[in-house]
Design a protein around this nucleic acid. Sequence first.
DNA 1: GGCAAGCAATGACTTTTATCATATCTTTGA
DNA 2: TCAAAGATATGATAAAAGTCATTGCTTGCC
Lengths: 232, 232
Amino acid sequence: METPHHCQMCLSHQKSTFSDLSNDAKDELSRLKTCVSFRKGQVIIHEGARPQGVYCIHRGKVKLYTMGTEGKEQIIRFITNGELIGYRSLLSDEAISASATALEDTFACYIPKSSFFKVIEENPKFSLKLLKMSCHELGEAGKMITSLAQKNVKERLAEILLILRATFGEDEEGYLDISLTREEIANMVGTATESVIRLISELKKEGYISSKGKRIAVSDRSALQQIANIFE
Amino acid sequence: METPHHCQMCLSHQKSTFSDLSNDAKDELSRLKTCVSFRKGQVIIHEGARPQGVYCIHRGKVKLYTMGTEGKEQIIRFITNGELIGYRSLLSDEAISASATALEDTFACYIPKSSFFKVIEENPKFSLKLLKMSCHELGEAGKMITSLAQKNVKERLAEILLILRATFGEDEEGYLDISLTREEIANMVGTATESVIRLISELKKEGYISSKGKRIAVSDRSALQQIANIFE
DNA sequence: GGCAAGCAATGACTTTTATCATATCTTTGA
DNA sequence: TCAAAGATATGATAAAAGTCATTGCTTGCC
């Protein structure tokens, strides 16, 4: 695909992981990067492979997931504007532990391994930022582990709906600005598709959410927080 | 408690996170650190607090856990010789997300926040090592998430037993060199204590493990791998 | 516009896991 | 060394979640 026009500015994108770099460093990165795009459903990186670079999402939505037993996807988290894909395995020097697939048409920069490491070595502050990011993710992963281990399916579903709302926000009509199948929701919650469908119906009857086709709207946030046992 | 003799050398301990530092840097750290020790059962850092430094375990075994609903512990991972406690929240500048408690008498160095950051800033290689560490942990956390979400209790128990064996090794008699109650094992596996007890009995009957009191020995590793769906 | 494919919804039933109750074994400390 | 506390073991039962089968709804495509 050709270089899209908006890619010229993507490193400076406000939320980009690279946004704090000096102009010099950004200029250099711009020379080294490639602009790429992925259609909805396209795999960006694949579990088990050895990464040769990182992707910085400029615009789009991506799911990060591992394949569990019986080929069932487990969605670990979502990646959106400004965030990186593939840095984990590059930095830990391991095979890619989670595949990434575009949930909608997605535009990204590709930065080759060597350039990425060069930026890290020459910009201690950037390196520290990555460290901060990965440590934050570690905390989030810990929370997810505790939820999966201790909460029941309904509690987890309520939690995930709140996470989706916080991550992707709402459209003009109040629906979550992300389109997921019930199966994908089940693959985040860690349960069977039918269970998610049943519980979504239940939450709807109780008046805490509404839905139309695959689109879901959170109508009572604090009720969901209570169901999910989130006190904040 | 007084400075134990062996603490003189703890930074140079072969497996220590700090072992690759230059001698100068290690000397400086030695002046800044304090040696501390914890009795079995003592809390080292507490969820929700703001950390003022990191601990580097010289000798001992520590569990890292978050408190879930109803005050139930969820053990995230174990920390042992050479590994750090508290670096995650220090680096992400967040409250401590997981408590740490000594599983046996434990000796550690305490490095104040300012000194820790000084080492990071002055030693890019060390910073990169931390980055590598945290990225590795992220991968491990992802695996744990997938297991909890997709495997049943018996599969997860088999997996945890293998992890314990890999982490702590065996004593002269072949027992896992870590003493955990059935409740603690349940708090790793993410299930009820009774379920763990039942399944340990089952694995014993099937001849894959043996046990004597709380001590457990893995007798058929590949059978456990098969049960846990681990192919490596 | 209509048809096929994929997705969502729901009921019936099974399996897994949790909970409660109680008994027995280990450990620890006076 | 013995008693009490704490841990382990096991059975009975209940609750939660998974699986299978079927129907109906959306959506996208010719």
